Amino acid sequence: MAVTTTYKTTNVVKNTQRIVGYDVARALAILAMVIVHFALTFVNIEQPETNGLLGLIVQFCEGRAAALFVVLAGVGLSLIARTKANSCPEALQAKRWTLTKRGLFLLGLGLLNLTIWPGDILRVYGVSFLLIAWLFQSSNRQILGLALGFMLAFVGLILRFNFNQNWDWTTLEYSNLWTIKGGLRNLFFDGFRSVFPWTSLIFFGIWLGRQNVQAAQVRWCLFWVGLGVALGAQIGSIGLTYTFTNVWPMLGQADAELLFSTGSIPPMPLFLLSAGGVALVIIMSCVHLSELFGASRIIGSLAATGQLALTWYIGHVVIGLGVLTSLGLYQNQSLATALWLALGFFGLAVGCSVWWKKRFNHGPLETVLRWATS
């Protein structure tokens, strides 16, 4: 698959028609995110159920739901940042200003969300928008280079600083969060979702958004690449951990497991490769199925839900977790109950999304975002 040298001259995207598969993938990202967050909130944290099929489902979704959401955010960002090859300086400046305003809006919304949810990721989106405001004309190679740079920079940070310093993992509380030093540290390094390294997945999503996934051969190529990277990362994690603790015992068990982990906390490179590969497989599958069955009610309902992704990201915290917690369900439920609640909330979200899209073009928060940054 050919990669162009600069985005201004790229010709890989077939047209500006909305790609429904991206919206379907966003809906699945919302579902996986709701499953993880409901399990985290409603299951007893001191006695989590990690065995059995339900435990495996939650374990698989942990981190990978966020990764899918972030990659898709990058895809959307690439579409917003798209410019014509002969754009005048005034048009480029207007695009830069739009991206800057949206970045500031998402950063502010993320800070508000952080007051009630420690796993906020909108702040990372905000910083990414601010970066792309100055980088949207970068070539595909440069975009992938930035993705790699953010990934490796996090490794340097975690070798230099103590990732667990401000966390109490038994209560999921972060000390000094609302100080300047603690807030910046949480945003850029050791938050649940921080700029380093999660922005690397946004840059990857930007690159993906520039590819002509409407072409079947491109979709299949990306699908198999994603599957290979995901499997390779998992196998590599096992192999490297064993090698550096047994064959060449250069690292202790704890250090090797940290550096070569595919767990989402802390998000080391092999996790990002694994989660990014899984995201690519899911996105290409959704695009392909949407091309085949675009007229089906299921695809249409999921697409409507995905188009309200920002609304449901905030909504599942404020409405879903907030209401159910107020009913006394906090950390005293079984995993099965938490998953049924998650599926019930997602079903409600799908129904509301279908109703809303029949009457309005954009979701509630999506409308506010457009109004505030127009």
Rank of each mutant, 00 (worst) to 15 (best):
R219N: 07
T245P: 03
T241M: 04
L231A: 15
L201K: 05
L251P: 09
T245F: 00
V278R: 03
L231G: 14
L280E: 00
L289M: 05
L259M: 10
P249I: 08
A230V: 00
L222V: 00
L280S: 01
T305P: 08
G205W: 03
L289P: 01
L270E: 11
L251Q: 05
F223R: 07
A279R: 04
E257L: 08
I283C: 04
A295E: 12
I238S: 07
V213R: 11
F203G: 09
S274V: 02
V213E: 12
P267S: 04
V213A: 10
G232Y: 01
A256L: 11
L292C: 12
A256R: 07
G239M: 11
L258K: 12
E291Q: 15
G276S: 04
M250R: 08
A230L: 01
G263K: 15
C221M: 14
Q217S: 14
A256S: 15
F271M: 03
N212G: 15
M250E: 06
T262S: 03
L272W: 02
L231C: 11
R210Y: 05
W248V: 13
G226Y: 00
A215R: 13
G277Y: 00
S261F: 06
P266V: 08
W224I: 02
V213L: 15
A216Q: 15
L273A: 13
V218M: 14
Q217L: 11
A295D: 15
T243R: 09
S264I: 08
A275F: 01
A279V: 05
I298Q: 11
F293S: 02
D255G: 10
L289W: 03
V287R: 08
F271W: 05
W248Q: 09
I202H: 04
I282Q: 09
L201Q: 07
A304M: 05
L302S: 09
I265N: 12
S285H: 02
L231D: 02
W207S: 07
M250Y: 02
S274A: 12
L289S: 01
T241R: 05
A304I: 00
S290R: 13
V278N: 07
I282L: 14
Q234N: 13
S274C: 12
L227G: 06
V218S: 14
L222T: 00
F204K: 00
S237D: 12
A275G: 03
G252F: 06
A304V: 01
H288D: 09
R210K: 10
T245I: 01
R297C: 03
D255A: 14
A303K: 01
T305M: 15
F293I: 01
E257S: 07
I202F: 10
L289H: 01
F244G: 02
G252M: 04
G294Q: 08
W207G: 09
C221W: 15
I299D: 00
V278K: 03
